[in-house]
Design a protein around this nucleic acid. Sequence first.
DNA 1: GTCATAAGCGGAGCGCCGTCCGCATAATTC
DNA 2: GAATTATGCGGACGGCGCTCCGCTTATGAC
Lengths: 188, 188
Amino acid sequence: MAERTGRPLRADAKINQDRVLAAAVDAFAREGAHASLRAIAKDAGVGIGTLYRRFPTREDLVWAVYRSEVDRICATVPGLLARHAPAGALRAWLEQFLGFLEEKPGLADTLKAALGTDEDQRLETRALLTGALATLIEAGVADGSLRPDVPALDVMLALGGISLIAGLPEQHGQAARLLDLLMAGLRP
Amino acid sequence: MAERTGRPLRADAKINQDRVLAAAVDAFAREGAHASLRAIAKDAGVGIGTLYRRFPTREDLVWAVYRSEVDRICATVPGLLARHAPAGALRAWLEQFLGFLEEKPGLADTLKAALGTDEDQRLETRALLTGALATLIEAGVADGSLRPDVPALDVMLALGGISLIAGLPEQHGQAARLLDLLMAGLRP
DNA sequence: GTCATAAGCGGAGCGCCGTCCGCATAATTC
DNA sequence: GAATTATGCGGACGGCGCTCCGCTTATGAC
C-alpha cells in the first residue's frame, strides 16, 4: 500500500502489484520477513524499482502480506472475552499474538516500525491493535482486575519489546515469563 | 576479543587490533553503533579482512568499545543502594542504563545479542549485568519491596526489550512509562 | 483513431556486509 | 643467521538494500 488514496492504479500496475504480493507471501513463508526483496521482485517477474515503487519500505510489503492475519487475531477478542475472565482473556490474546510473531521471523521489527511512526497508513494498523487491546483492558478495568491507568499502546509496545528481545520460538519460555511480568504490572 | 584465550597475539596483530579499536571508538561516537565497518577499517589503515578476523561480528567490536562504560555503570550499584531505598535504587539503575542505551544508537541490538546467546565470551558480560541487578533485587527482596521470584536475567531482558521498542532519545517518555510498568510487575 | 501526458517500468549505480584464500611475515628452532 | 611454520593480512567477491532517472505505455480527451 504505497499510494496515498488517489485515483486507482493503472491496470498493468495493479497486475504487477499482485504478482509482487504473491511472490512475497511465498518468500516470507519460506524464509521469514528478511527474505531478499530483489529475489521477490525477480520471482514476480518485475524490476526491483517496481517493487519499491509499490512498497517503499520492507515494512509496507510485510504488512500487506500479514495484514489479514492481524485482522483475524484482532477479531478473536469477543470470543476470548466470552470464554475467559477479562485478565485471562487479555493474557490469552497477548500469548496468541506473541505466538504469531514467533512464527514469522522478523515480523516484530515491522511491528516496531508500525508502532513507532506517526505516518497515516501505519496509524490505521495501530488503531486496529490498540482497539483490540483497549476492549480487553476496559473489560478488566470494569471488573477490577486491571489497572485503569495504562494505555493500550503501552501494552502493545511492551508486547513488541518482548517479541524483539525474546521472539524466537525457542525462547518462548523466556517470553512467557516476561508476559507474566507484564500482566503483574497491569494488576491494580 | 575474537581469539579464544590461547597464545598471545602476534605483535603486529596487536597493533592492528588497537588501531581498529581506536578507529571504532571514534566512528561509534560520531555515528552510533551502525557505523560502516569498512570505513573503520580504512581509518585504522587496515584491510577489512583484518577487522573481521579480530572482531568476527559487529557485536564483538561494539562490546569491546563500550565494555568499560558498562563496567562503570555496574559499579554504581553500591552508591545507589547507599542513597536510595532498594526499589528506588533499582529504578534509578535501570533508568541510568536506559539513558546510556539511548545515547548510543544501535547498542540495544548488541545488548540483545549478548543476552540471547550462550557463547562464553558473552556470558561474562551477562554475568556482570545480572550480577549488578541481582544485588539490587536482593536488597529489595530483603526489605520486602520486591518479589523474590523474578530472576535478574528477566529484568535485564525486559530492559533490553524496552530499549529495543522505545530506545530513541525522543521516545524517552514512552520508555519511562514502560519502566514504570516493569517496576509495578516487580512488586510483591 | 490519434495524440498528449501522466503513470509506471526496470535496471544501473552506489554503498554496505561478511567470507574466503593466496601471499606476507613474525616467531621459533636449529 | 637461515629455515620453517604458524599466524596474520587484505582485497576481491557475491549478495543485499535503496535510489534515481531515461524509456515505455495505458489512459483520457478530442
